[in-house]
């Protein structure tokens, strides 16, 4: 898997590339508009992570060029502006997703995984990990062909865990993924703990080959049992 990260902020760029490299992706970087332009003309990528505010140009123009070249790459727009205009413009220009800064790397990863999944298996929308099968269309979960009935948030949690398998997932990134802008809640963590506890119990009951492991003080990890 080859990913191009177009981001002018070096600190941000390093975190992103380090994260994806650890997951086994090949990461290329561009810190300027010109560099990005050159790279998208020379190479093909599976996914382009695009910051739209670049020092020497607008990232949306890169997006347009990619679309003009009929690039098959999945495109995620990163923006610190979080303005509605940009979001709408980006998505209408053909971006696959829009992620406002600041974001959790796990969240970015989940979005990249979702896009790559969409691009790779068009039609067959199933995620298979060990003996767990998630049908993304029907939102049904099967363990060893046996249906595991989950609540909406539990399903979302499981999908997020699967997308970030074997990586550490912080509690805050989980809360933010589940609650979005509504994460500023007194008991969002209490709720989360109970949901995770429940999910863990269910996966254990159904003898799933993967389960959630708690990491002291930090968060969780989705690992093979």
């Amino acid at each position: 898997m080859k990913i191009l990260v177009i981001e002018d902020e070096v600190g941000m760029l390093h975190s992103i590339t380090a994260y994806f490299a650890k997951s086994g992706y090949v990461c290329e970087v561009a810190t300027t508009f010109a560099e990005a332009e050159e790279k998208i003309h020379l190479y093909e990528y599976d996914c382009v992570i695009l910051d739209i505010t670049l020092p020497d140009g607008n990232g949306l123009d890169i997006l347009e060029q990619l679309k003009k070249r009929k690039s098959q790459a999945g495109i995620i727009i990163l923006s610190a502006k979080n303005s509605l205009d940009d979001r709408v413009k980006g998505l209408t220009l053909g971006a696959d997703d829009y992620l406002p800064k600041p974001f959790h790397l796990t969240e970015l990863n989940a979005r990249v995984v979702a896009i790559l999944r969409r691009l790779k298996f068009d039609g067959n929308n199933e995620v298979i990990i060990g003996n767990i099968i998630l049908n993304l269309d029907t939102k049904k979960v099967y363990v060893d062909k046996e249906e595991l009935i989950l609540k909406k948030k539990e399903y979302e949690l499981l999908l997020f865990f699967i997308s970030n398998k074997t990586r550490i997932i912080s509690k805050t990134s989980l809360a933010e993924h589940i609650w979005g802008d509504n994460a500023d809640r007194a008991d969002s963590f209490d709720f989360l703990y109970s949901q995770i506890k429940n999910l863990r119990k269910r996966l254990q009951e159904y003898k799933a080959s993967y389960n959630i492991e708690a990491i002291y003080g930090i968060g969780y990890k989705f690992v093979t049992v």
């Binding site: 902020e9 600190g11 380090a18 502006k81 800064k101 930090i218």
Partner: peptide, 26 residues
């Protein structure tokens, strides 16, 4: 927004990288 969100994002991500350090104590 841009100026503040970006450094915040970087801090968040750097802290995450710390989390992934295998030698982390409790």
């Amino acid at each position: 927004s841009h100026e503040m969100q970006t450094p915040l994002g970087i801090i968040q991500n750097k802290v995450y990288m710390l989390m992934e350090e295998p030698t982390l104590t409790n």
